[in-house]
Computed example of a mutant assay.
Amino acid sequence: MEGRSGPVVQDQVAETLSWLVNPGAADGWEERVPGVAVLGEGRSLAVPPASWRCGPSTRWLSPAHGDCLTDPGALYDALRHVLHPGRAGRA
């Protein structure tokens, strides 16, 4: 995903990574990619200040740049490849 990922928020306490995509772009991913949680309506994401790039809790693993969104197709393919290597590709 190099060059195609938008900013990534890392929560080191909860051991999660969060990418930003257009609203609705990740609908249904939880059923197709076990291990993925989609934050939709009624859920929230703690976003750290732009200067937080290190430290023991929430930080920017990849800081904001450009339009601040990740291409959902590229992210979906990458997550399936990493989380389920034998079933990579779009479903």
Rank of each mutant, 00 (worst) to 15 (best):
H84G: 01
V38H: 14
L17P: 02
T16F: 10
Q12L: 10
G35M: 14
Y76D: 06
E31F: 04
L39M: 11
A37D: 03
P7F: 15
A26F: 01
R80G: 05
V82W: 01
R43D: 03
V33D: 00
G40F: 12
S62K: 12
T58R: 10
P72Q: 09
C54V: 08
E31R: 15
N22E: 12
S5G: 05
W19A: 00
G73M: 14
V47R: 14
E15M: 11
P34I: 09
L69G: 04
V9G: 11
S51I: 09
V21F: 08
L79H: 06
A37P: 00
R87D: 11
A25W: 05
L39R: 13
E2S: 07
L61T: 00
G40A: 08
V38F: 02
G28R: 11
G55D: 09
P56L: 07
D67Y: 11
G35S: 06
T58M: 07
V38Y: 04
A88E: 15
L61S: 07
L75W: 03
V21S: 01
L83T: 04
A74M: 10
R32C: 07
L17Q: 10
P49H: 15
L79P: 00
D67C: 08
E2V: 04
A78N: 06
G35Q: 10
A88W: 14
G42A: 01
D27G: 12
S44K: 07
V36G: 00
G40V: 02
E31C: 01
G86H: 14
R90L: 09
R87N: 06
G42I: 04
A91K: 02
E15V: 11
T70S: 06
E30L: 05
V33R: 07
L39A: 13
R59L: 15
V36Q: 05
G42D: 08
M1R: 05
A14S: 01
V36I: 14
G86Y: 13
V33P: 00
D11V: 00
L79R: 03
P85H: 08
G66C: 12
